[in-house]
Each structure stands twice: as structure tokens, then as C-alpha cells.
Computed example of a mutant assay.
Amino acid sequence: MIESFYLFHCGYIRVPSFMMIAKSGMQRVRLPLLAGVALHAERGPLLFDAPFGPNGPNNLGGAIGGAMRLFGMRFESEWAVTERVRTLTGAAPDEIAHVFMTHLHYDHTGGLPFLSAARCHVRQPEWAFVTASRRPLAGYARGDLRDLGERIAPFEKAPRFGEDLSGLDLLGDGSVCAFATPGHSPGHASYRVKMADGRHIIFGGDVAFTTTQVVGELGLGSMPRNVAVSRDEVQRSIEELRAHLLQHPTDVLLTSHDLELGERCIQEGPIAI
């Protein structure tokens, strides 16, 4: 089973607050790019999303990566997902056997080319969306996905929250169970992780940008609203997850851009959940 879970940031970008949270003003906040690593007793490190590799935002190309840095993106080489896992678990990148992707936007995939042995779990609708079109897709870095080959492991039958509490068991021992939370992207997934001490952690990716947009009253800012492929599906996924958390209040929700958790990671370094 899973003995520990760490949340960490792989970079951040300064943006006006209203882009994250509705009606919150022009003050600038640090939008974090968060990922998680769990240590499984038998399977070793399990990675949840892979925001940036050693090349940082250059996964979109050197010119765009340079422009992102110019306009506020902050990245340091020690923040690369490969270095984070090495520091937290002692594992080399080629020792990571599984990475669980919430979706395939560029700020979640930059580390994938550097995880040469990792089986990449992603919902089938997400993989189909990326591979069906030959045209450039906004928000996706095809180069991160080009050489995955047989390492890609699309899955289809993940239930939505509220349909089946057990979810889709991806490792066969109940430690990582997938749920469909579409809207932000066509095949967005969230993962419910069972810890050895009986707790559950939900890694929700971009189902919402902050946890308070699920468990509280804060509205989605302009960025999550404009990026979403379906605002109606975003709202449905949020409502289903909110209902789940009301029924299971001890579950710990993590999102990939949460301001409070991200600020803790930026200030303190990786945090144990």
C-alpha cells in the first residue's frame, strides 16, 4: 500500500488574481504548477502528473518557453519533476514505473519524456482527443507525448464521483482508483489514493483551480473558464466531487494550481500530505 504522499511545485507564474478566482481583483498571485509523488511499498514511487522536466517550460519550444519566462514564469532546474522525485524518494527517473495523468495539457506533461520506464495512465477520451487531430492543439505539447509508444496506458471505464465509490482500480490493490472528471479537458481524470493508515487523498488536477472552488464558495476565474472545453461539464464534475466530499469529509482534496497549498510548497518546499 501507499506509505507516504508528497505535494511539490515544479514552477509558478505570476498572474492577476481574477484569472484564478472570480471577482478577486488585479493583485498578482503565484499560480503554482503542482504534482504529487506517492511511495508504494511494493511498486515504488508513483507520480501524479509531470509538470516540467529539466528543460522547464521549453517543452513548448524555446521561443515560447523564453517568452513565458519573460512574462513571469519561474522555473529552477531543481524543481524539475525528475529532481523532485529523486530528492523525495531516492529513485532515479528510470525507476518510476507509473505516472497517473489527470490530463495532457503542457503544464502537466513536460516531465514525461524524461521518465523512460514509466507506464503513463490517462483516460481514453483524453488520449483520443490529442491523437485524433493532426492540427496543433492549444494547450498541448505534442512533443511530450510523441515517444510514449507502448508506455501509454489509456483506460476507459472510470466512473464519475457518486456512481461508484471504488472507482477504477488501476493497480489491482485499491491503492490508486480513477474517476472521470471531464470539462477542463475532454478526458480529465482525478485519482483517489488509499494510504496505508486508512486515509484517502484525491489528486484532482484541474477539476478546479483551487480546493475552495470545490469545497467553498469561490468561483472559477477567467483562466479555468476560458480554457475549459465544456463549462457545463466542469460545473457538473465540481458538484459531483463536492457531494463526494460531503459524504466522505476525511478525504483530502489536492488540486494542481491551489494557491494556498502552492504557496506553502514555494515557501517550504515539498509538503507531506
Rank of each mutant, 00 (worst) to 15 (best):
V99A: 04
I96N: 06
M101Q: 14
R119D: 11
V85A: 01
R151F: 12
G143R: 14
P136H: 13
R142M: 12
Q124M: 02
E95A: 00
Y106I: 00
L137F: 10
V122C: 13
G139V: 03
V122Q: 10
Y106T: 00
A138F: 14
R151Q: 01
E83L: 03
G111I: 02
E95G: 00
D147H: 14
P125L: 13
T89Q: 03
R84I: 08
A80G: 02
A91H: 04
L115R: 13
T109R: 14
F155K: 02
Y140T: 06
G90F: 05
L115T: 04
D94L: 00
L115H: 11
E150P: 15
A138R: 15
A80S: 09
M101A: 10
R134T: 15
D94E: 10
L148T: 01
G143Y: 03
A117S: 13
T89V: 00
G143D: 02
G111M: 03
L112H: 10
A118Y: 05
G111W: 02
E150Q: 11
V85F: 10
A132M: 02
T82G: 03
C120V: 15
L112V: 09
L148C: 06
R84L: 11
R142T: 06
A132G: 01
T131E: 11
H108F: 04
T82D: 05
Y106M: 04
G139P: 06
V122L: 07
H105Y: 14
R142P: 10
A92F: 07
V122R: 12
R135I: 07
R123T: 08
R119S: 05
L148G: 00
P125R: 11
R86H: 12
P113Q: 11
L148F: 07
A128I: 14
R86E: 13
G139H: 06
L88E: 07
I96V: 12
E150C: 11
V122S: 13
R134K: 11
R134I: 14
A138S: 13
P125F: 07
A117H: 12
A80N: 07
T102V: 08
T109H: 03
F155V: 01
A92Q: 10
L145A: 01
I152A: 13
G110C: 04
L104D: 05
P154C: 08
H98V: 00
A92L: 14
E126D: 04
L112E: 03
R84M: 15
R123S: 13
L137W: 09
E150I: 06
